[in-house]
Write a protein that binds this DNA or RNA. Structure first.
Lengths: 219, 219
DNA sequence: TTGTAAAGTGAGTAATCACTCATTTTTAAA
DNA sequence: TTTAAAAATGAGTGATTACTCACTTTACAA
């Protein structure tokens, strides 16, 4: 009765939150909750203040979400499931069909694609990162459905370019880790640690990608 | 009356927590608090349960720490201040005095040194990472006294090897970021994300360092 | 206009929260 | 053995918590 996840939208472009079938007040609850969770964290955020900020009676929250935790999950799980899965499928195909001739092309596509996503859903991504350690469901969902999938697919890409002789022959898990941390490190610096610096995104991405390429180049 | 930080100990080796002048019950409070903060996070941890786990009356906590937050800070700030500062001073000297002939030597020293520290204080490091976003004092202390210092010193090292023609001429901030994220990415994977895998630390460190070196090599 | 289900309300509830304080116990120097 | 300070206690405090429920309002098809 609650979730009718429109299971197509994001495949074509985005719109992760099924904001369509939410009532006006429900949207304001979600908005206020995202703000508060980000500022104080989940368990330091009270439902009474969320209601106050949303301009809504406290009971209204519990009309739509049976518990405070359910509210958190409703906010965070759709973003989690779109954080990683969809783009990699598409880009994986392009790699295997040789649309991406070099690892460089693949990397750049990944970075660009995820940058627009993270930029758009940054507050929720932050909440997700914060709360993952404390919620079993989030952890298992992340590991089982996201991380494993990501490593599988990313691993295939790495192996593909290793076999082409383009990348050094180290364990694919290491190559993935090194590629990902360089990329995530950029996002971390760019959007979380020092978002106020005036970044030259194009240049910084180029530096980061070249770093990975030279670091992993067959030698 | 509370803090008489023995300001020499860690310079020679470590022993970050001034456990010396703590009463028996105080040590058990700190131990229980670290456990709970790690499991549930700071604000989801109640002083009553901390007391129960420590086998201590709740009032005893407030004999030693005026507030719950003061307990958190007492646990977390000494680790933060030793997380970064001391080793870099020493290693910086060695670089400038050419004890470290190559960037490789510096990197390996840094990784080895910080690995023993992180291994020893992992629970508190985790708490620190979790709580930094929500506590102004922690954030400013981290930025002003830790991050800036680290970047200053690390920057000097990078520039030194750039001038020697060993490293590529990119902005030092980028070179630092790329070096650090590769190292931190290893620690993150090794001790937080998948600590249970059977790691070949030596090999993995070698791979990581070589990745950084080739990624940043002058070309 | 009426009927009905969904949306919204807010006072009320028991539990829990961080913290206090009068009192007792422990420690250790005199 | 005396004594005074420090450490430890735990019942008690008012505030706040997540959540409930009897009720009112709104939306809208018949």
């Amino acid at each position: 009765m609650k979730k009718e996840e429109n299971n197509m939208g994001w495949l074509f472009d985005e719109e992760v939150s099924d904001s369509g079938d939410l009532t006006e007040k429900q949207k304001r609850i979600v908005k206020a909750a995202v703000e508060m969770f980000q500022e104080k964290g989940f368990s330091a955020s009270s439902t009474s203040e969320i209601a106050r900020r949303a301009g809504v009676a406290e009971g209204t929250i519990f009309r739509h979400y049976r518990t405070k935790k359910e509210l958190l999950l409703a906010i965070v799980t759709p973003v989690m499931s779109h954080l990683v899965a969809p783009f990699i499928v598409k880009d994986l195909d392009k790699v295997l069909e040789q649309d991406y001739e070099h690892y460089e092309d693949f990397l750049k596509a990944v970075v660009r694609n995820r940058q627009t996503f993270i930029r758009k859903h940054l507050p929720i991504v932050k909440i997700l990162i914060q709360e993952i350690p404390f919620h079993e469901e989030l952890r298992t969902q992340f590991i089982e459905h996201i991380a494993k999938d990501l490593f599988d697919r990313f691993g295939k890409v790495v192996v593909h370019f290793q076999e082409k002789g383009e990348l050094i022959e180290i364990p694919s898990s290491s190559a993935i880790r090194l590629s990902l941390t360089a990329i995530l490190g950029f996002f971390l610096a760019r959007y979380i640690m020092v978002p106020d610096r005036d970044w030259d995104d194009e240049k910084e991405i180029e530096i980061t990608v070249q770093f990975i390429l030279h670091g992993l180049k067959a030698r």
